[in-house]
Design a protein around this nucleic acid. Sequence first.
DNA 1: TGTACATCAGTGAACGCGCGTTCACTGATGTAC
DNA 2: TGTACATCAGTGAACGCGCGTTCACTGATGTAC
Lengths: 219, 219
Amino acid sequence: MIGETEPSRIRRRNPRGQGERLREDILEAADALLDGTRDASRLSLRGVARRVGIAATSVYLHFPDVDHLKLALIEAGFAELDDARDAASEGIGDPAQALLARSRAYARWALDHPGRYRLMFGPDLPTALAFDAVESPSRRTFETLVRSIERCQEAGLCPMDNASRVAMLVWVSVHGLVLLRMDRPHFPWKPLDEMVDDIVRRVINLNAFTKPGARTSAT
Amino acid sequence: MIGETEPSRIRRRNPRGQGERLREDILEAADALLDGTRDASRLSLRGVARRVGIAATSVYLHFPDVDHLKLALIEAGFAELDDARDAASEGIGDPAQALLARSRAYARWALDHPGRYRLMFGPDLPTALAFDAVESPSRRTFETLVRSIERCQEAGLCPMDNASRVAMLVWVSVHGLVLLRMDRPHFPWKPLDEMVDDIVRRVINLNAFTKPGARTSAT
DNA sequence: TGTACATCAGTGAACGCGCGTTCACTGATGTAC
DNA sequence: TGTACATCAGTGAACGCGCGTTCACTGATGTAC
């Protein structure tokens, strides 16, 4: 066992004018702590400082308090998650394939960054700071899902149900999938991509027009 | 503001031979704390003792440590949840209606007991104690869902897909639904029962044989 | 019938821990004159 | 060219808090003789 309570030593003071670099180091260390093999436990200011190799008080040079640090992590997390989804669907013409690829990317990002994902969508942030407003990053993420579904509908690939309602169902389904996989690691899950595809197809009723019930045993 | 740090005073020592009643009082207080309006925060041994009106150390008369207290809460929670589902489907002949009623009951119980539900399905319990084994209460709860779906299949109400796979999808979907409703209370959700019905119908492909795509705008 | 004793249902003080936050400070580096 | 000073990037000690857990104890109640 390596003494994990000790700092990562190597750090030395940033040169003059480069003080902002500590901010990046803090965010990076916090991400690493959240994503690491650690027991998905909660983030602490002192833990982050320890990992960066600075005094706990130095965090206050860049964040007024621990909640603002969390807020910065959440905002960066949404940016990363959105990027991952965009990258996954890049160059895919078929709207249904694009939606599935984006959904798989969402799920994979979540499972690769369990601590961050939990912070972004969990109850940890004090309600005073929790953004649920229309212009919040999570709402923007949701809106891209709505549009992705609308494109499928316009292409005639699935029924024209209210896209916003359907998006809610897709969102909660994939959310539940990734959370339970995190929290019940010993359950005999099927492969992630398979489950994501399966659930999204069913929820949006993909191919409902082309061959309903085609995969049943009643062939 | 009432001084919440103070105990609920009124308690007096149990009569001789009735020492086991304190155990019940502790479990009740813990449930109340978990389900209360409290910020879905984590349970603490001292908090429970305060609410019961006993010394913190008295908890050790009935539980070897705080994790075993949590374990007892989880087991009781699964029993309650199973009862709620059974009660909801009692007397319903149609397997599909029964499944929907049971699913709605699951979701409602979860939202009525957010702290307990989170404890039961969340990451809080140390892995050493977390039961993921085949005979665990959560597995039993899952198996009743599988059987509920099989009954729908046998009645010809939905495709004969692998029932266990479909049950996984239903479970994660409803789980995600209740968790996000807890954690994003300001999101413009549709009514709970509606969403549960909608999502379960879609996931198990209910009525896939009778009238596929019947509700689309392409009528 | 009285009394010694065991049992029972708890208590109270203390421990060490990690946490967020405050306060006054330090010591290197650049800049004005 | 030398020096006083401001600025910058941090530090270290201390605070009060709630936590889980330990240890030795207390005081009422029943029971054996």
